[in-house]
């Protein structure tokens, strides 16, 4: 407060500008990450990008706290309430309970959570959920078409809906390919019917990512989609060592070709989940005073989810395959194709 006034006094001459700045400086958007950390090159980092953009475009003051363990969720949120944050962004399904509790206790603070939708909705919480299966479906179709061994694989971090929805879509995409081309490409690591599959049970260990990718590779998979935040970077390291003719990786959340530049050549594509856009939206709504509790759903149609470009593999993907994927994308957008049905 004291610094805000000082700042105002220093810039007193262009009066309008000064008051605008002071007002903007007063608005605090604060983000609590999940255990993957702010620099996970995917999930948390993408959400943080949205907050950073809000900082630049809206002049909001943005802060973050990294959760190192699940025990940190509640105290981290508590610290931000104590800090006087106007809107608190919690990143991840696992923060669902902690966010709901904090929101109920602090009706004056706006909350928005990535990957959780409350039912019934809470007045001061916007849930951000994504139809990720739509984009993962396209990735599955692509993987099936690009696999030389006829086997592709996936594994997840923890068996929670926002993770398994990637794996559902991926498997459905492969099945769609098998039906369309009379092929018999196998998917390892996930069964959409029993909802059981391969999970590292954490979002931190790069070693686990490497081991799981190695296991899938040993079982003949030549394309693997890890859905486990930074854990997937371990899988990318393995693909880098083996060479992309042996193993390719499908990134998740962000376009990992850009977020993981050292290993960018191993990413066939990435399943994009644009948390940056939804986080930015929620912060903007809170700042402008139009915040209303509810749900934002990211879809292929509204660009909330998507398939990244193939980058280095552009020339390797046959025109027929990329054409079919474009057609599928249109089909999903206009509703004629519903993944999983």
């Amino acid at each position: 407060m004291k610094y805000g006034m000082l700042y105002g006094a220093l810039t007193a001459l262009p009066l309008i500008f000064a008051s605008a700045t002071a007002q903007a400086q007063d608005f605090k958007a604060c983000q609590v990450t999940d255990t993957g950390g702010i620099d996970d090159k995917g999930f948390n980092e993408t959400a943080w990008k949205g907050a950073e953009r809000a900082g630049e475009a809206l002049g909001a003051e943005v802060k973050f706290l990294e959760s190192q363990a699940e025990t940190d969720y509640q105290p981290n949120i508590g610290s931000f309430i104590d800090e006087g944050c106007d809107v608190i962004v919690t990143v991840g399904f696992l923060l669902g309970d902690a966010t709901a509790t904090a929101a109920a206790a602090n009706p004056d603070v706006d909350f928005t959570i990535v990957d959780f939708a409350y039912s019934p909705t809470i007045d001061n919480v916007i849930g951000q959920v994504f139809n990720t299966q739509e984009a993962a479906f396209l990735a599955g179709y692509l993987a099936a078409g690009m696999s030389e061994t006829g086997t592709v694989g996936t594994f997840g971090g923890i068996n929670i809906p926002p993770v398994t929805v990637f794996m559902d879509g991926f498997v459905w995409g492969v099945e769609w390919y098998n039906a369309a081309r009379s092929a018999s490409v196998q998917v390892l690591g996930w069964d959409p019917d029993s909802q059981e599959g391969l999970f590292t049970n954490n979002f931190e260990s790069l070693d686990d990512g490497r081991t799981f990718a190695q296991n899938l590779f040993d079982e003949n998979a030549d394309i693997v989609m890890p859905v486990a935040g930074p854990v997937g970077l371990g899988a990318a390291a393995l693909a880098d060592e083996l060479g992309t003719d042996q193993l390719k990786i499908i990134g998740v959340d962000a376009d990992q070709f850009f977020t993981d530049p050292e290993k960018q050549h191993v990413y066939l594509t990435s399943v994009l989940k644009r948390m940056d856009a939804t986080v930015f939206n929620a912060i903007e709504l809170s700042q402008s005073g139009n915040f209303e509790g509810g749900v934002i759903v990211g879809t292929l149609a509204n660009d909330g989810v998507g398939l990244a470009p193939f980058h280095d593999f552009d020339s390797a993907v046959p025109a027929r395959l990329s054409g079919e994927i474009a057609a599928l994308q249109n089909g999903i957008i206009n509703g004629s194709i519903v993944p999983g049905q």
Binding site: Q68, A69, E70, T71, Q74, L94, I158, N201, N202
Partner: peptide, 17 residues
Amino acid sequence: VQVLGVLERASPGFSSG
């Protein structure tokens, strides 16, 4: 004390070091 006082439930690795 952790489970009954702070966490109120358990999740994998709730001892958190």
